[in-house]
Write a protein that binds this DNA or RNA. Structure first.
Lengths: 335, 335
DNA sequence: CTGAAAGCGCTAACAT
DNA sequence: ATGTTAGCGCTTTCAG
């Protein structure tokens, strides 16, 4: 790597002159600036990132900690984060907690020693079920800002980017009721998560608020993600009179649709289905699944903006931004 | 952040004593070591990463540049990379080229100035079609090692981790021939990529090597990924006598299966299908898709190992590691 | 307009 | 056993 010192020697000027010239300082004569820049370009000079960080106590890096990169929602948010951050000149250092509290804690500690200027986090399941928040607070005490998205800790005082999980689900469920569905089931493999609970509650609220709707709520919320497809198939066989399905997670809507088709259901005539996914699943379904779209790209972009604002400006109170969802009706719903 | 200097002042010793004590130097008396460590722990001292990097010219970071994080294969490799790297004490800085040569180039340049100790890369489509390799060579000249995986540049002299694309496809196609299939079509939306070509060639070779197989090859390789599902459906309608399908990319096997089922094909009795994906798609298909599994986790892990070996040891000749594939027969093939 | 010097936090060779 | 010093590459005040 070529350094300022080397440039200075070759040009027989001082290091500080070179530094100033490269920053277009008024102090330096136009000719010198030109000479310096020419040589810098010629030798492909690149300022050493570590030296600048050490000097400025700024890293221009963001630590991103997500629970599971194999989940398409998180991958999409990460995509947006990387895009927005890189356009703003920030690097992304990524850690995958794999739903483990310990890994999340370690990641926070490792990156907390001057590696990043702030964090964007979606909380691990274990962290959420055990309600751990001390590790977040200790980072915040070090003046490192945190933006939480999707899975947030209400008890931590930091910026947050979420969607209106409760309202989105309530609206979607109400749509099925208005279609005239009499027996609507909820599928969820994320019922232990904060967002999962909010979504279930939205479903329950919609049912209880409706005058026409008579049946009891039906919630299929148990079982691991791995064998949820078998639960769903068994459920459909056992409950042939269910005429509406709503999914609270990313995948079970798609699974329900494919299983229903296999079992001979006419979709949507006999059975309406709404998933909680985005467009990427469409190519895997025919008829195309109606979904609640949570706009992962907007979530990622907003998270970066809020974090960089806090890093660069000195803002004060924590804010929570709610990204709007859309109910996108395609071919698995009527109306 | 608490520094060595602060510890030194509180303990009324010099900075170097503190530094040595924390590194368990023989030079320092046991008592002093104890005192220093106690205070360090008490104040939660963390060595400043940037200072260490500047001093040692090592960052303990790896730059990972991948074309598309929304592709499940790349997400899975990244997952493995992060896991292996973090267990070895390395951070991952991620850049997404989004298949663009320019973004790939910029990422390489930005991280090339002392931000990382080496790179793991899968090449952008544009880079590959335009056959650009100078940016890789200029990084290598700076003594920064590169490991390429999956999509590699043959003309760049660096370590590589690949699968036997040609052989995997040849074997899978031969399997369909041995099942007695008479008209086997290849679906691919990646035919411009190096790996795509190798896979097509494997298919062609299997057909031409077979004595029993009489039909001409049929390759559906055009169209963008976005509307490939419609191409596939149209193809199936137009070619009802096709009795075998093999997919060279991640998604078209799944799409073909769902479209075939919708059109009333009996799978696998009438039509055998083999995809080029991994287990994650299984929950979306019924019958479960038979696939060529490329072991993304092994690819990621091997890439990290090779890179760190090269960073830490001083190895010489470039090596290419071939990760074995498996033909996993499930429910969309007979035998 | 240019340069010398200090310092970011750390390590390590070299005193004492 | 402990301290002093120099230096990694850069920015920035202060002097000339």
């Amino acid at each position: 790597m070529v350094t300022l010192k080397q440039l200075a020697e070759q040009l027989s000027v001082s290091v500080s002159t070179v530094s100033k010239a490269l920053h277009d300082s008024e102090e330096i004569s136009p000719e010198t600036v030109k000479r310096v820049k020419a040589l810098a370009k010629h030798l492909n000079y690149q300022p050493n990132k570590m030296a600048i960080s050490l000097k400025s106590s700024k890293t221009k890096s963001i630590g991103v900690i997500i629970p599971n990169i194999l989940n398409h929602f998180f991958a999409k948010v990460l995509f947006a984060i990387e895009k927005e951050a890189s356009s703003r000149g920030y690097d992304i250092i990524i850690c995958i907690s794999n739903e483990s509290f310990t890994k999340e804690l370690q990641s926070l500690e490792v990156l907390g020693n001057g590696s990043v200027d702030g964090f964007i986090i979606s909380i691990a399941e274990e962290t959420q079920t055990k309600n751990k928040i001390d590790h977040f607070n200790s980072i915040l005490q070090q003046q490192l800002p945190i933006v939480m998205f999707d899975r947030v800790a209400n008890d931590v005082d930091c910026d947050k980017v979420i969607i209106d999980d409760f309202g989105a689900m309530q609206k979607a469920t109400t749509h099925l009721i208005n279609e005239g569905r009499k027996k609507i089931a909820l599928f969820s493999n994320i019922d232990e998560l904060s967002v999962g609970k909010l979504r279930s509650d939205g479903y329950l609220k919609a049912l209880s608020d409706s005058k026409e709707y008579k049946n009891e709520p039906i919630m299929l919320t148990h079982g691991k993600e791995e064998d949820f497809d078998e639960y769903i198939e068994a459920f459909l066989i056992k409950n042939p009179d269910v005429d509406g399905i709503i999914s609270a997670d990313n995948t079970s809507g798609v699974i329900a649709l494919n299983k229903a088709l296999k079992l001979g259901y006419k979709v949507p005539q006999q059975l309406s289905i709404i998933g909680f996914s985005d467009e990427n699943v469409l190519k895997f379904t025919d008829p195309k699944l109606s979904t609640i779209s949570q706009h992962a790209l907007d979530i990622g972009k907003a998270s970066v903006k809020i974090l960089i604002d806090r890093i660069e400006k000195v803002t004060t109170v924590s804010k929570t931004k709610v990204i709007k969802t859309d109910l996108v009706l395609r071919q698995t719903t009527t109306h």
